[in-house]
Amino acid sequence: MNELQGKVAAVTGAASGIGLASTEAMINAGATVVLVDRDAEALDRVCGRLGDRAVPLIIDLLKPESCASLLDGVLAKAGRLDILHANAGTYIGGDLTETNLDAIDRMLNLNVNAVMKNVHTVAPHMIERGSGDIIVTSSVAGHFPVPWEPVYSASKWAMTCFVQTMRRQLLKHGIRVGSVSPGPVISALLKDWPEENLRKAKESGGLIEPKEVAEAVLFMLTRPRTVTIRDVVILPSAFDI
């Protein structure tokens, strides 16, 4: 399967979880993938396993200068950019009154601001080339007000709006914009889930694997250019929200 043969993708938060699974799926489909992450050790380990079409790019998206270097870094390493999967994010759950204020800033900066900045950075390159794909990792929490995660859910609602507005701004330039919105995924983000919620999800089979989200991403990327998959909500069949 070489549906992405010759394409160059950049994936943020690529060293683990959904980002890593998305990277693996794109490489298997023929793409060269620039793995964007701040964890240099994890990037070296992953890229060593994945081979020559996995290219590491160390960026801390929470540092403005580093975040702004994304396109320059990709072009320096791969020469072009066809696909951006803006995947990096973090999670806060629980009562708002018990949430650390610095944690709120960090989460909103990563889940919202960094995504907007990344799209702002890469869009001119894609506009000049007249083609491109931008996919944002959102969440089912961006489509339903989840009462035990008010900050996280609000950040993903922001992404739902951002994707729908940017799709309209960029479609005339041949650029497709969409989001994939998983339910609970087995990943490091779940470490912050309320213990009781996590226990119930595990017992009921209410979790999905990152590779299942990656398959949805690949589906979005491999549709004919006349088709945009704007929103994919992918849930464990046993998940009830």
Rank of each mutant, 00 (worst) to 15 (best):
D95G: 04
R49H: 14
H143A: 02
V146R: 15
A68V: 03
G79E: 05
V46G: 10
N111M: 11
D95F: 03
L108A: 06
V177Y: 09
R129G: 08
V115F: 09
I134V: 01
L81I: 13
G132W: 00
R168K: 07
D72W: 06
S66R: 06
H125Y: 02
V163D: 01
W157F: 15
V140P: 03
C47T: 02
K63P: 02
D52R: 11
P56D: 10
D82Q: 09
D60M: 04
I134P: 03
L110M: 10
I92S: 07
A68I: 10
L50G: 03
V163Q: 13
H173W: 12
H143T: 11
L110H: 06
R168Q: 15
L108N: 00
R129H: 15
G93M: 12
P182K: 05
R53G: 08
T165L: 14
L70T: 12
C47Y: 02
T97C: 08
L70Y: 06
G79Y: 02
G79C: 12
G178K: 06
G93V: 03
A123K: 02
N100A: 12
C67D: 08
A88V: 07
V146M: 15
L170T: 07
M116T: 09
F162N: 07
G73N: 01
P64I: 06
D133V: 09
H143Y: 06
T165F: 06
I104Y: 04
N118H: 10
K117D: 11
H143M: 11
M126C: 01
R53I: 05
N113V: 12
L61H: 08
D133R: 07
V112P: 13
A54T: 08
R80A: 14
R80I: 12
D72C: 00
E128W: 04
I134L: 12
D72G: 06
N87P: 00
S153F: 12
L71M: 14
P56Y: 04
V136C: 13
A78T: 04
N113C: 04
G130Y: 07
H173M: 06
I127N: 01
G94W: 13
D60F: 08
P64Q: 03
M126H: 00
E65V: 09
H125I: 00
V180Q: 05
P64S: 06
T160G: 13
I127F: 08
K156N: 03
C161Y: 10
S138K: 07
M107H: 12
P182R: 01
I83Y: 05
D60C: 04
T160F: 13
D82M: 10
S69G: 15
A86F: 01
M159L: 03
L110N: 02
W148D: 04
S138G: 14
A76S: 15
N100C: 13
S155F: 06
S69V: 03
P147S: 12
S131C: 05
V55S: 07
H125T: 10
G73L: 04
N100D: 15
S69N: 15
L110E: 11
F144E: 04
V146Y: 14
V136S: 11
Y91D: 01
H173L: 07
S153C: 00
V163I: 10
L61I: 09
W157A: 05
